[in-house]
Design a protein around this nucleic acid. Structure first.
Lengths: 114, 114
DNA sequence: CCGGTATATATAGTTCTCCTGCATATAGGA
DNA sequence: TCCTATATGCAGGAGAACTATATATACCGG
């Protein structure tokens, strides 16, 4: 997986809020989350699978998400994650923080959000 | 210096574009740049001085900025930085990239830029 | 039926940016 | 004289992303 230019730097720290948002309303498994991120941002934002799984384990350790293993015939086993109540609070907070950060960046660095 | 919540994570990688933007039109020395960032973002975005100087040296190594030492009576010596031609190109590119990243984040994570 | 691609998860080791803590140095006010 | 603000600099470490590699299954073409 490749990503583009300075987005390599920009996206540091964004994995958490992105993942939490994606499993806010429906549960998804790791591989699916990676594909969704890529799809919904037209490839502007991607995370390597290794990073993504590491992040999922971290979020689960913190109690912000909860995984459930599902085994189906004709499929490799998958772990479906959903957000927890604690996770919802964190998500709300992170959205505010990111929003404030983006505003600050516009102010001081002239980054326009088209 | 303290910073607020998830902005700790968010801001990773943002120092470069912020510094380049601040010395786009006029030269500033390190300490001044730190104060400007804090001032212009109402304290939402800050960098510790140690990080800031490290970043300045890195940017100069890459040829994106150029420092000039100024000694004045009644003042500690200061290094004033200005952006280079190469730096201007990088700044333009980083603004585009950050803009695209912010759009992606709004799309996939529901981050609203007020 | 055999090999390649897509799906799906997992670990190890590395890189990069920012951090804290410490050190140095000068000017001005209490 | 001591404390604060100004101003720069280094050493060591934390954390989140990366690459590379390993494992395992389903599906499709030749």
């Amino acid at each position: 997986m490749t990503s583009r230019g300075a987005i390599d730097e920009a996206k540091k720290g964004s994995a958490e809020v992105v993942i939490l948002a994606l499993i806010e309303h429906e549960s998804h498994h790791g591989y699916e989350i990676a594909k969704l991120i890529e799809l919904r941002t037209d490839g502007d934002l991607t995370f390597t699978l290794a990073s993504l799984y590491a992040t999922l384990y971290r979020l689960e350790d913190r109690g912000w998400i909860k995984g459930r293993w599902v085994e189906k015939a004709g499929q490799r086993r998958r772990c479906y994650y959903r957000i927890t109540e604690a996770g919802r609070k964190v998500l709300a907070r992170q959205r505010e923080d990111w929003s404030r950060f983006v505003a600050a960046l516009g102010q001081v660095a002239g980054v326009k959000y088209a």
